[in-house]
């Protein structure tokens, strides 16, 4: 749960971008948009998990019930 999370997210972003370029060249437009969406969903699920833990720690820290 350290810096490698940032590298993981960046890697997913770049990979999906590259896949889209390849799929666009192979004129499979709909697959390209699907891979973009899949990459976004993966990254979002990771980040939303982190936001959940952040808000929990803040709630306990500042007793914000």
């Amino acid at each position: 749960m350290e810096v490698e999370v940032i590298f993981k997210i960046a890697a997913i972003g770049i990979l999906t971008a590259v896949c889209c370029q390849i799929l666009k060249k192979a004129d499979k437009e709909e697959l390209a948009t699907l891979t973009t969406l899949a990459g976004l969903v993966i990254v979002l699920s990771m980040v939303i998990g982190m936001i959940g833990t952040l808000f929990d720690t803040l709630k306990n820290l500042f007793s914000l019930y």
Partner: peptide, 25 residues
């Protein structure tokens, strides 16, 4: 990384910034 990813995927770039903020906290 945000600078690099922004041209291809601006949405993922914002999420990188968000993740960095959380890690710093």
């Amino acid at each position: 990384l945000v600078l690099f990813v922004r041209e291809h995927r601006p949405d993922v770039a914002v999420l990188i910034g968000l993740a960095a903020g959380i890690l710093i906290l």
